[in-house]
Design a protein around this nucleic acid. Structure first.
Length: 828
RNA sequence: GCCGAGAUGGCGGAACUGGUAUACGCGCUGGUCUCAAAAACCAGUGGUCGCAAGGCCGUGAGGGUUCGAUUCCCUCUCUCGGCACCA
């Protein structure tokens, strides 16, 4: 049978059926076996898979199948991150029920995944929109509430005017909604938060353990959590005696503070100016800043505007009276919303002070370019030096001053040493329908009361009109809202907001271990066996959001005593994007390639092979309609190898060769076979270099074909080489390999259960090695010699060669460098 | 501005701890087969000079270390990604 589209379809359908029916990839806890948990970031069920999914899941599948063949007990599950806005948008557009729409999409998605031949344990499939899943979201929320980690507060929040809902800080990218790119505005609302900041220290410190994560993801998380060590300093307002707290990371410069600045939103601003001659101007300035959007304020020319508040503060270290200003370059969200300004040693303060002719004082002496007068400074000096004008601290280095001044201030109650985190608490309530109802009840007499665990799940009501016109859709349903208070049994109302969908995905990896358990969120014993995830694979776009939240939840579960580890993902691979014509594939650009059409034309195996071969997994991958033909051709050549060259009977084939020459050929194939095993195994194990692993298999095929042409070999040796090839290739292109394995008489019910081939080091030893000869570092010749030949002999051999002699003519040999079995360099 | 990653043929990409640069594939050129085409197979394919043998140049640019540098060090250019009035 020739390798054809029809044949491929038959084979792929056949084996997908067998894997499914015989549950080849089903696993359960087995303490006797060594486990391996491979997980890909589960998809949002849009109904169609795209090339990004194909790449992500193919990478995961090769790893899963490779580990299975290596004898690991592999957990490789799949599910659907099924709550979220697209279902609501579809509901508005097509007038369908979001649940119906979502489940239909899931059905389509499942079919597409099956067509790719992924090795999932389908018995563990889950969807976050199932009540059997989201009831555990609610359970976790109640636990967090119980521990004081879930709380409600009124605050200025991020609001997306187009999605009509609140957003977490992590969902605002450069001032825009991560989903729809609308400009995010600030609104004052009362919302539910998770106290992720309580874990800031752990989330930051434990990054050190994640040695198998891409460094850039670590860096991104470090930046996001944003640790800064500093001091809170207490200034007194001269007139009222009230305390004004500022935050600084440079306590060594405190003696150079010549004014303080408040953010326009700072609560003290109004108090300072009320009833004074400054009131009108200050309030109108505050008003003006408030009208600028956050993104306007952060971008643009960074012009610093400000106004004098008409009041003075007292510097606690020297009792100096300095003016209080209000300026837009100080942000209410960071630190205390107030700073001490040291224009000589902070460039922003410097520019502001110049603009408004505020005083300056140098307190750190630049050793290279020492300045005495602030007026000589062209810019702030932010480097190290000796303390001057700093009272009892004069003469010490500022690095020393940093510690001693901080400790001294703390000792004298002028301030407090603290760590400030950039990370904010996670706003999780959303004014949307298609999500997990927050299990809270508002009672007139008891206040905010949690739903009791026994009453979970709080089911999402059906038949809700979704207009997209704002307000929580659940508020429409009287039947949903009206309930009784679990505490006093009086009539009460339910919370109508739903949870951010990132809540759902923050713990699904634990649920996969106990996917069908209806008694518990997950079974601690199963979690102890399967977790942590050995290899997680997904897109870089989740470097902060999902990965940070998942780490937070894991730490929370550990504190609950449900698990014994604090990091969920041992190893992380972030795959590169799939590009077409140099741009990211996207519907809006109209440059997508539908995986379904590619499967239709070439089959899943060819698609898998191409996507693994075209680039290393972490790099961007340029889709190429021509190049995929190469993958098809390769599989066709492998196929023909078995059709044409694999023979059941082992017999000696030699066409006019001496036995010695035939043995030589025979040895050579065996060597190539072992080289391929070694290369493929190492490439998968060390960094998932699938592209070079595939090229090694191509090399083996080239070699086998060449030996065939010459016709000198023992059949058994060639058969072995072909069998090995099929096993090595099986994780990459499983359908065709299952079929070939069966044709060759493989006994196991699936090639996935056959042991991965091992390397015979002895078979790789060569009788001759090629020695490269250089003269002055330039390649001048090659010699085949016996391994470990002695230097004198080698020298004689080389210098006797006329080609080498030509390059040595009339020159004295200065030096001879010999790298054993590799190279000789003659220096003249 | 700060941090991180990178730059290799016409293209995607290889190159172990410094040791034959361009593996493997795509494309291209020529050939075999065919009435023809497709497919398949074979050969060639960094630039340049040369009839040839062979020489010279060549991994973003410039310098350095070394017998020898894509690999190590310094300076610079460009590309991509992240963060960014963070006190």
């Amino acid at each position: 049978m020739p390798y054809s589209t029809d044949e491929i379809k038959r084979i792929e359908t056949k084996w997908q059926g067998i894997w499914h029916d015989k549950k080849i990839f089903k696993v359960d806890v087995d303490p006797k076996k060594k486990k391996y948990y491979v997980l890909e970031m589960f998809p949002y069920p849009s109904g169609k898979i795209h090339m990004g999914h194909v790449r992500n899941y193919t990478i995961a599948d090769v790893i899963a199948r490779f580990k299975m063949m290596q004898g690991y007990h592999v957990l490789h599950p799949i599910g659907y991150d099924a709550f979220g806005q697209p279902a609501e948008n579809a509901a508005i557009k097509h007038k369908v029920d979001p649940a119906e729409w979502t489940y239909r999409c899931i059905d389509q998605m499942r079919e597409e995944l099956k067509k790719m031949g992924f090795s999932y344990d389908w018995d563990r499939e889950l969807s976050t929109c199932d009540a059997q899943y989201y009831r555990w979201n609610q359970w976790i929320f109640l636990k967090m509430f119980e521990k004081g980690l879930a709380y409600k507060k009124a605050s200025s929040v991020n609001w997306c005017p187009s999605c009509e809902t609140t957003l977490a800080n992590e969902e605002v990218i450069q001032g825009e909604c991560w989903r729809c790119k609308s400009t995010v505005v600030q609104k004052d609302l009362e919302q539910w938060y998770l106290k992720i900041t309580q874990y800031a220290e752990d989330l930051f410190e434990d990054l050190q353990q994640l040695n198998h994560w891409p460094p850039r993801v670590i860096t991104m998380q470090e930046n996001w959590i944003g640790k800064s060590q500093g001091v809170e300093i207490y200034f007194k307002i001269q007139k009222t005696g009230e305390t004004l707290t500022v935050f600084t990371t440079r306590p060594d410069t405190i003696f150079g503070a010549t004014y303080v600045v408040l953010a326009p939103e700072h609560p003290l601003v109004k108090k300072l100016v009320v009833g004074t001659s400054h009131e009108k101007n200050v309030l109108s300035f505050v008003d003006k800043v408030a009208k600028e959007s956050k993104s306007d304020r952060l971008s643009g020319d960074l012009k610093k505007e400000g106004i004098f508040a008409g009041q003075y503060a007292i510097n606690p270290v020297n009792q100096e009276t300095i003016p209080i200003w209000i300026a837009d370059y100080v942000l209410m969200e960071y630190g205390t919303g107030a700073i001490m300004a040291v224009p000589t040693h902070d460039q922003r303060d410097f520019l502001f002070a110049k603009e408004h002719q505020l005083p300056m004082r140098i307190v750190i002496q630049d050793a290279v370019n020492p300045q005495q007068r602030p007026s000589d400074l062209k810019e702030a000096y932010e480097g190290d030096g000796l303390q001057i004008n700093s009272g009892i601290f004069n003469g010490i280095s500022n690095q020393e001053g940093l510690k001693r001044i901080a400790a001294w201030m703390e000792g004298n109650k002028m301030g407090k040493i603290i760590v400030h985190w950039r990370l904010r608490d996670w706003l999780i309530s959303r004014q949307r329908y298609w999500g997990t109802p927050i299990p809270m009840i508002y009672c007139q007499s008891c206040g905010i009361v949690p739903v009791s665990e026994q009453q979970l799940p709080v089911e999402l009501p059906k038949n809700i009109k979704i207009s997209g016109q704002g307000g929580s859709p659940l508020a429409q349903s009287a039947e949903f809202i009206e309930t009784t208070c679990p505490r006093c049994q009086k009539p009460a109302r339910r919370e109508t907001d739903t949870m951010a969908t990132f809540f759902d995905s923050s713990w699904y990896f634990l649920r996969f271990g106990s996917a069908n358990n209806n008694e518990k969120v997950f079974d601690p014993k199963e979690a102890a066996y399967w977790m942590p995830v050995d290899q997680y694979i997904g897109g870089i776009e989740h470097a902060i959001l999902h990965l940070l939240y998942s780490r937070f939840f894991t730490k929370f579960f550990k504190d609950l005593g449900l698990i014994g580890f604090s990091e969920p993902f041992y190893r992380l691979l972030t795959q590169g994007m799939v590009l077409k014509d140099g741009e990211v594939m996207s519907k809006s650009r109209g440059n997508t390639v539908d995986p379904d059409l590619v499967i239709e034309k070439y089959g899943a195996d060819t698609l898998r092979l191409f996507i693994l071969f075209a680039a290393p997994p972490e790099d961007q991958l340029e889709w190429n309609d021509n190049a995929i033909e190469g993958s098809w051709k390769f599989l066709s050549r492998v196929w023909n190898l078995i059709e044409n060259k694999y023979k059941k009977e082992d017999h000696f084939v030699s066409k006019g060769m001496t036995n010695a020459a035939a043995d030589q050929e025979d040895k050579s194939i065996e060597r190539e076979r072992n080289l391929a095993i070694k290369k493929v195994t190492e490439d998968i194990s060390n960094g998932f270099k699938f592209n070079t692993a595939i090229s090694a298999m191509m090399v083996l095929v080239n070699k086998i074909e060449r030996y065939q042409v010459e016709g000198h070999f023992k059949q058994k040796t060639v058969n072995d080489a072909i069998k090995t090839l099929v096993l090595l290739l099986a994780p990459f292109t499983p359908h065709v390999c299952e079929e070939l394995w069966r044709i060759m008489g493989g006994a196991e019910e699936s090639v996935a259960r056959v042991a991965w081939p091992s390397v015979d080091e002895k078979a790789m030893i060569q009788d001759v090695v090629s020695i490269v000869v250089q003269v002055n570092g330039k390649l001048r010749g090659k010699f085949d010699v016996a391994p470990d030949v002695d230097e004198e002999h080698l020298k004689k051999l080389i210098t006797a060669d006329p080609r080498i002699q030509a390059h040595l003519e009339g020159k004295a040999v200065k030096k001879l460098i010999v790298v054993p079995n590799k190279l000789v360099n003659i220096v003249v």
